[in-house]
Simulated scan of single mutants.
Amino acid sequence: MLSLLRNKTVRDNAMQIGFVGGLVLLILIFIITARTNLEAQGMTSGFGFLNRATGWGVNFSLIEFTTSDTYFKVIWVGILNSMFLGAIALTIATFLGTLVGIMRVSGNKMAELIGTTFVEIFRNLPLLLQLFFWYSLLTSLPKPKQGISIFDVAFISGRGFYLPGLNVSGGYVFVVFLILVATISLALWIRLAKRFKRIPEVRKTMITRMLWLGFVVLTVVIFWLGRIPDTPLLNIPYLKGLNFRDGIRVSPELLACIIAISLYGAAYIGEIVRAGFNSVSKGQGEAGHALGLSPWQNFSRIKLPLAIRAVMPTLINQYVWLFKATTIGIAIGFVDFFMVISTSINQSGQTLELIAILMGGFLIINYSMAWVLNRVNDAIKLKGNQLRT
């Protein structure tokens, strides 16, 4: 026994086992204590409540939901709404942020001034304050009867934006959106990844076109399968009484969240993109000019790919942070994941279980997004040491 204790490996392993065992024991004591306290208050623990009807409704859902549906389904509604909001806001923020970053390094004084002004305004104002501002502005628009008409096919009012829509179930639309994101990601991967470097440009173009053709075919099939029976595929909103009918209603809550997160995120992404372009040495651009490349070719084939490789790790962190920012929707009544969990806690009293679901949901979503983007980063990053002059 003494000989074992004198062995450093045995002592180290024993200390690690003791530490892990202590943590496990502490967690078990916490669980037992929490269960005892809940039983003393007449509250049941466990996840059986997920099969109970909620008795309350939601004002925005991508899938059909009624008051008789279960807590499990309303949580799924919240997750889909948050993912929907995050996907739209992150896409717009990326586009605007890239544009702002390019403007700031363009060399054009007016473009640089506009880009700098945008960053300094939207980066330095709290996100929640921006959300309240846009929500107040959108709800102050004219009432439906005095709504702004856009060629009689779309309307703007204080109750939301009404757009032409498809008579397709929301779940099918969300699937098409996910396929669109996957198609764009695959097209960029084929264009930028080092493993496809030896593939001729003509073949890359053909593969990209095939991807987009597949997306169009899948979209048509999914929309046809998801079409609501006995209805036309396209419907146009129209005014009837005091409100608009048919079409797609983009609520002020959803629109305010999209605008606030997109502009706030674009200010940060713009700075990240600017740093990426500044990291590309002037010598590489000058080499492109010496080879006879046009300014656009020099930008698209030399500066942009190198800048994307430089900023990808930072962008991944920014995307994860921006998705977590979707929880601000609860401040104005948008039915996101956080709001659904909060309401469920008030209605059911299952606090620990619902908080665990909330934490687990965000961990899975953010980790999955980071994992995919990290794989993209591994595929496009330059291997080895890159010496710059």
Rank of each mutant, 00 (worst) to 15 (best):
Q350N: 15
L225C: 04
D336M: 03
L128Y: 10
G46L: 02
W321N: 13
V175G: 03
G265H: 12
F215L: 06
I261F: 09
T117Q: 09
S294E: 02
I27L: 14
I199D: 14
S294Q: 00
L358H: 07
G241A: 02
Y238K: 05
P237M: 07
G21L: 01
R375V: 14
S157D: 13
I17T: 01
D152R: 14
P164E: 04
D378K: 12
R309N: 06
A379M: 15
A87M: 06
G292Y: 13
S185N: 08
I330A: 05
V74F: 06
P126F: 07
R6D: 03
M1W: 10
S348P: 08
A154F: 01
T67F: 13
S157T: 07
N377L: 12
G165F: 08
T326I: 09
S3T: 11
A267N: 05
N366L: 10
G285C: 14
M83S: 11
E64Q: 15
Q41I: 04
M206V: 14
T139D: 02
Y268K: 06
A370V: 04
E39G: 08
L306K: 15
N81V: 08
L186R: 08
K197W: 09
I31S: 06
V20G: 01
I27K: 14
S344R: 03
R159G: 12
L141M: 07
P142Q: 08
V372D: 10
L131Q: 00
I190T: 05
W224Y: 14
I156Q: 00
I63D: 11
E112L: 13
F95T: 01
F362Q: 14
